[in-house]
Amino acid sequence: MSDSAPQPSILMVEDEEDIAFLLRFLLERHGYAVQHAADGRQALAALGEGAPPDLVLLDVMLPFHDGLEVLERLRQRPAWQAVPVLMLTAKARESDVVRALELGADDYVTKPFQPDELLARLRRLMRRR
């Protein structure tokens, strides 16, 4: 990547501090600019601020507004409709996965996750954009 190319940006919505720290470290080490929202309220506020990111990494279980509500509201905004959304959550039931995909998620990874797999899925979604 050349110095003049902008860093791809990711909005990370994660309420668990340890996981957020790990994800930020992993993503920044691989050249991504990370904006962190620690709960559903902060995530919804980010929808109204500036240009959308290149990708949203979204937990399901969040304080105030859960990730599915955030996803639904995000997909209602024209500027955000093409932004890839990767759900990253401990909720592994088939019904949770199906609901997220029906609401517009592009991919679904369950915790605990493998860092290399997560990065590969992020890169794949960004290439498709």
Results as ranks from 00 to 15, higher is better:
residue 9 S to M: 04
residue 18 D to K: 14
residue 118 L to D: 04
residue 48 G to Q: 11
residue 54 D to P: 02
residue 72 E to T: 13
residue 11 L to R: 00
residue 129 R to D: 07
residue 98 V to Y: 06
residue 91 K to Y: 09
residue 38 A to F: 12
residue 18 D to G: 15
residue 32 Y to Q: 03
residue 109 V to A: 09
residue 110 T to C: 15
residue 84 P to R: 01
residue 17 E to F: 14
residue 43 A to F: 04
residue 66 D to N: 11
residue 88 L to W: 01
residue 57 L to C: 06
residue 104 G to C: 06
residue 95 S to Y: 06
residue 107 D to F: 03
residue 58 L to K: 00
residue 3 D to Y: 11
residue 75 R to D: 02
residue 63 P to T: 07
residue 38 A to Q: 14
residue 59 D to W: 01
residue 10 I to H: 00
residue 82 A to Y: 00
residue 90 A to R: 05
residue 53 P to C: 06
residue 122 L to K: 02
residue 5 A to T: 14
residue 26 L to S: 05
residue 118 L to F: 06
residue 5 A to S: 12
residue 22 L to T: 14
residue 12 M to C: 14
residue 107 D to H: 09
residue 22 L to C: 12
residue 49 E to M: 09
residue 12 M to T: 05
residue 80 W to K: 01
residue 105 A to Y: 01
residue 95 S to H: 11
residue 109 V to Y: 03
residue 72 E to N: 10
residue 99 R to S: 11
residue 29 R to W: 07
residue 68 L to I: 09
residue 29 R to D: 15
residue 77 R to D: 08
residue 35 Q to D: 14
residue 78 P to M: 06
residue 42 Q to R: 09
residue 104 G to Y: 05
residue 85 V to N: 05
residue 85 V to S: 01
residue 59 D to M: 08
residue 4 S to F: 10
residue 57 L to H: 02
residue 54 D to S: 11
residue 17 E to H: 12
residue 123 R to E: 15
residue 9 S to V: 00
residue 46 A to V: 09
residue 111 K to I: 11
residue 86 L to F: 06
residue 2 S to C: 08
residue 112 P to A: 08
residue 88 L to P: 03
residue 108 Y to F: 15
residue 39 D to T: 05
residue 127 R to H: 13
residue 16 E to W: 10
residue 60 V to I: 15
residue 6 P to H: 00
residue 110 T to R: 10
residue 37 A to C: 08
residue 7 Q to L: 15
residue 106 D to G: 13
residue 120 A to Q: 13
residue 87 M to I: 15
residue 80 W to Y: 07
residue 28 E to P: 09
residue 36 H to R: 13
residue 93 R to V: 14
residue 33 A to C: 11
residue 69 E to T: 12
residue 85 V to A: 06
residue 34 V to K: 04
residue 39 D to N: 14
residue 84 P to T: 02
residue 19 I to A: 12
residue 29 R to A: 15
residue 33 A to I: 03
residue 95 S to D: 14
residue 58 L to R: 01
residue 3 D to P: 10
residue 81 Q to S: 08
residue 104 G to N: 08
residue 98 V to W: 07
residue 100 A to F: 04
residue 34 V to W: 03
residue 75 R to E: 02
residue 108 Y to K: 04
residue 41 R to C: 12
residue 118 L to W: 07
residue 101 L to I: 11
residue 76 Q to P: 00
residue 1 M to G: 15
residue 26 L to C: 05
residue 4 S to D: 14
residue 115 P to H: 06
residue 73 R to M: 09
residue 39 D to P: 04
residue 106 D to S: 14
residue 68 L to Q: 08
residue 3 D to W: 13
residue 54 D to N: 13
residue 42 Q to W: 05
residue 6 P to F: 03
residue 15 D to M: 03
